[in-house]
Structures are given as C-alpha cells and as structure tokens.
C-alpha cells in the first residue's frame, strides 16, 4: 500500500524524486508522473527531496496499512 501521494497538478516533472529513489519505482515522462505500488517501499526519500512539495507522506494512512497487513 502506497503511503506516498503525488499532487500531479503541482509537479514540475524535474526528476529529483527519480534520482533519489533506491527502487526505481517512479516513472516520469514529459508531463506525467507515477509511483509503482509494487516497487515502492514507502521510504519517503522522494518526499524529502521534492523541491516544491509535490510528494506527500500520508502518515494518516499508516494505521490503515497496519490493519491491512495484519488482517
């Protein structure tokens, strides 16, 4: 489950997030950006490095994630 949310309308498609992603989980084209749920480990490096706050770490979803993991 993805804890990282992208605000695509805010994105400048600059590629910082792709450069720091250890899993190569982010696909960035000219003006589209997607995180692969399969590859992403929610490490949040992309969130920290985004210069313009496009990526958000959804802390509020952690409980939901725990619930789904231990179901």
């Amino acid at each position: 489950m993805l804890l990282i949310e992208i605000k695509p309308d805010k994105c400048d498609f600059c590629g910082v997030c792709v450069g720091v992603c250890p899993e190569d989980a982010i696909e960035l084209k000219e003006a589209t950006i997607k995180i692969s749920e399969e590859l992403c480990t929610n490490c949040a490096k992309c969130v920290w490095c985004c210069p313009i706050e496009v990526l958000v770490f959804r802390k509020d979803k952690i409980q939901q994630l725990k619930a789904s993991t231990f179901k």
């Binding site: 600059c14 590629g15 920290w48």
Partner: peptide
C-alpha cells in the same frame, strides 16, 4: 539527474539524499 539508462544496464545510479 534521473539516470535510468544506467539502472536499466544494471548500474546503481541513485544517490544519497
């Protein structure tokens, strides 16, 4: 900065934050 061609070739290109 994205350096994905390197990753496709098996080179570790991601950098520490």
């Amino acid at each position: 900065v994205e350096s994905r061609i390197g990753r496709f070739a098996g080179i570790k290109t991601h950098i520490k934050i």
